[in-house]
Design a binder for these strands. Structure first.
Lengths: 340, 340
DNA sequence: TGGCGCTATCGAAACGTTTCGCACCAGCAA
DNA sequence: TTGCTGGTGCGAAACGTTTCGATAGCGCCA
C-alpha cells in the first residue's frame, strides 16, 4: 500500500527505449513504429504504470483538474450539477473538484485561492453575487478559462449559461393570476443577486401584464436559505390579510414554505396556493404535489462543462456569450383558484 | 485573466534573497531572520504570489489533495458527507475531490485510477462491495493512506468508520414487532454488500429475539436504487397477503416505497406501516412523517477526514481499527399497530 | 558515390518547487 | 592569530514529465 509507483523511466528501461519515446507513445505526439508501440505498451501493462498527473501538469502547463464552485453541494440541485460535471469530466479524462461557497463572498474567494494553488485548468462558477464590485474583485482571482453557470456577474467577460429568470418568475406568477389570485406573496432571495432579482422582476412583470399592481409588502427576502424562508413564510402567513398564494424562488425556499404550511396546518390548495421555482426531486411523494417552474439544470450543466473543455482545448478568448435556457411550468396540485 | 502567475523566483528577486530563503519563509522550515521574513512577505503580497501546488506536490512527494469516493454525490446523504469533508479539508489547507461510483465496481476502479493519476495524498472510500475478492482487487489500486466509511471490505487493512448496521435493522424491525406486526416485509439492498446484509440480518435477529420466524418471501432486493426499490415495493404490496409493515434499508429505497404507496393510494399508517433506515432531510414536510432509524453520518464523516489527515501527517500504518457509531430510532407517524 | 529527405528515436533542457550541504560572518575562547 | 560555533543565507540537485532540436539509418535520384 505505501506506494512507490513506477515512473516513465522504469517503463523506458523495461521496453529498452528512451524516455521521450515512451512519452511519445503515451501522448501519440510523435510517430513511433508499430512494434516499438507494442513493446512500450507491454511494459506499461507489466509494471502497472500510471502517468504522474502532477508531473504532467507541471511540465506541460496544462492541468486536468476542473474546478466547480457552487453555493452548496449539499443542496440536491447543485449536487445534480456536480454529478453531471463529474460524468463528463471522467469520460474526457479530467477530474472535477467541487467546492461550496455557502453564498459567502469571502469563502468564495478562499475557495478560488485553493483552486489557484492547485492550478486547476478551468472553472465553472455559480457566483455568490452579480454586482460590478464583485466582478472587479473576481477578475483578479481568476486566471483560467471559466464558464459562469446560472448567473452573470457584471464586468466578467466569461460565457454565461443561464435560464431566463425573468420568465421563470413571470410563469409562476402569471399562472396564479390566471387562476384568480390577486394577493400573491413572494419569498425572494438575496437582493443584488441577479437570479433572485430577475425572478422577482418576473413577478412584477406578470402583474403589469395583467394590468395589476404587485401588492405592497408581500415581497420578503429569504436568502437561499431554508430557515430564513421559513421565517418569511411564517410572517407572511400570520398576517390577517395574508396572501392567497405564494411564489418561492428556489427549492430551499419552497422547503421553508412547506415547513411553515405544515406548522400552521394550512390546507393546500384550498386555503393557500403556491408555485415554486426549481423542482424538488421528491415532488411526486409530496401531498399536495407542488406546482413548479423548472429549469433544465442538467442540460445546462452538461453544456457548461462541454463548453469549458472546448475553450480549454482551443484556447479561445472568452466572448461573454450568454446561452439562455427556457424554464417551463409544471402544474401539479398546489395551485388552484383562491377561496371565495 | 490569461494567467502568468508569479513564481517563487519572482518573489526572491523582488525581496533580494535566494529562492531557497523564500521557500524557508513559506514553510517555516529553516531559521530566517525577522527582517528577511518581513521583506519576503512584503514581496509576496506585492506581486500576489500563490505557491504552485503542483510543483510543491511533485517535489515534496506530498499531495494536498484528498479523494472522496462515494456511491452517488447526487444522493443527499452522501452530499452531506462531501460537504463535511470539504469543510474540514478547507480549514486544514487541503482540497477534496469527490467521485461517484454508481455502486459499480468497474467505475470505482476507474475512479481510483484517476485518483492515482492525480496522486491524491489520501482517500476516504465508501466501497461498492465488501467481499474478499473485491478487497483483493482494491488493495492493488490503493497506494495512499485510506479510511473506509460506512462499510468494511474483507481483507483491507484500513481504519473503518461505520454504524452498527445489525442494530439499525434490529431497531427498525423490533419497533414494528412491538407494535404488533407479524408480516413485515423488507426491501434490502445488494446481497453481498455488508451494509445491506447486516441491516437485513438485524431484521432476522429482531424476529428471533421475539421468538418469531421472519416470514418467507418478504425480503426483496432493491439495490441502492430508487426505481428498483419502487418495483420491489409494488411487488410486495400487490400481493393478496401483503405485509402490514415494511422496512427499507436506505433513504433511496424509502423513496421508492413512498412512490409505490402514493401510486397505490395506501393510507399510512392505517393500512401500512413503514420504518426507513437513514433519515430523509425533508421528513418533516412529508405526510405522514416517516419513522426512521438514523445514523450519525455527519460526525462519522468528520471523524473519517480527521482521522485521515492525522494518518497522513503521522505516517502511521493502518491498523484496521473499527470505529462503530450507534444508530437510533426516531418514531414519527408512519408506524402504528397493524389493522385489526 | 554523394547529397537529400524522410522516419524513427534519442538526449537534454525545462516546468516551480523543496531539500540539503556548504559558505559566510560575527563573536568568542585558546 | 587561529579555530570553533551558532545563526543565516545561498546554490544546485532532484521530483517525473513534455518538448524540441539533433542524429542515425535508409532509400532514392542525379
Amino acid at each position: 500500500m505505501e506506494g512507490i509507483l513506477a515512473t516513465i523511466k522504469d517503463v523506458a528501461k523495461r521496453a529498452g527505449v528512451a524516455i521521450s519515446t515512451v512519452s511519445a507513445v503515451l501522448n501519440r505526439s510523435a510517430p513511433v513504429s508499430e512494434d516499438t508501440v507494442a513493446r512500450v505498451e507491454a511494459a506499461i501493462r507489466e509494471i502497472g504504470f500510471t502517468p504522474h498527473g502532477v508531473a504532467q501538469s507541471l511540465r506541460s502547463g496544462r492541468s486536468r483538474l476542473i474546478g466547480l464552485v457552487v453555493p452548496n453541494i449539499a443542496n440536491p440541485h447543485f449536487a445534480a450539477v456536480a454529478r453531471e460535471v463529474e460524468n463528463v469530466c471522467l469520460s474526457a479524462g479530467y477530474t472535477s473538484v467541487v467546492f461550496s461557497t455557502g453564498q459567502d463572498a469571502e469563502r468564495e474567494s478562499q475557495v478560488l485561492r485553493m483552486m489557484r494553488a492547485q492550478r486547476v485548468g478551468g472553472l465553472i462558477i455559480i457566483p455568490t453575487r452579480s454586482d460590478a464590485a464583485h466582478g472587479a474583485a473576481l477578475i483578479n482571482q481568476i486566471h483560467v478559462p471559466t464558464v459562469l453557470l446560472d448567473m452573470y456577474v457584471e464586468g466578467l467577460p466569461f460565457e454565461v449559461i443561464k435560464t431566463d429568470n425573468v420568465a421563470a418568475g413571470y410563469l409562476a406568477t402569471d399562472h396564479l393570476i390566471r387562476l384568480g389570485h390577486r394577493r400573491i406573496g413572494i419569498i425572494a432571495g438575496i437582493p443584488g443577486l441577479a437570479t433572485s432579482d430577475d425572478r422577482a422582476g418576473g413577478y412584477q412583470r406578470a402583474h403589469e401584464a395583467h394590468g395589476l399592481r404587485a401588492p405592497d409588502g408581500l415581497m420578503l427576502p429569504g436568502m437561499f436559505d431554508q430557515s430564513l424562508a421559513y421565517q418569511a413564510a411564517m410572517d407572511l402567513l400570520a398576517r390577517p390579510d395574508r396572501p392567497t398564494a405564494i411564489v418561492t424562488i428556489s427549492n430551499m425556499m419552497t422547503m421553508g414554505l412547506l415547513f411553515a404550511i405544515r406548522e400552521l396546518g394550512l390546507r393546500v390548495p384550498e386555503e393557500l396556493s403556491f408555485v415554486g421555482i426549481d423542482d424538488l426531486e421528491y415532488a411526486p411523494i409530496l401531498k399536495p404535489q407542488p406546482t413548479v417552474v423548472v429549469t433544465p439544470i442538467l442540460p445546462m450543466a452538461r453544456r457548461a462543462i462541454r463548453s469549458l473543455l472546448e475553450q480549454m482545448a482551443s484556447g479561445a478568448v472568452p466572448d461573454g456569450r450568454r446561452e439562455v435556457y427556457e424554464p417551463h411550468l409544471i402544474v401539479r396540485e398546489s395551485s388552484a383558484p383562491p377561496p371565495a
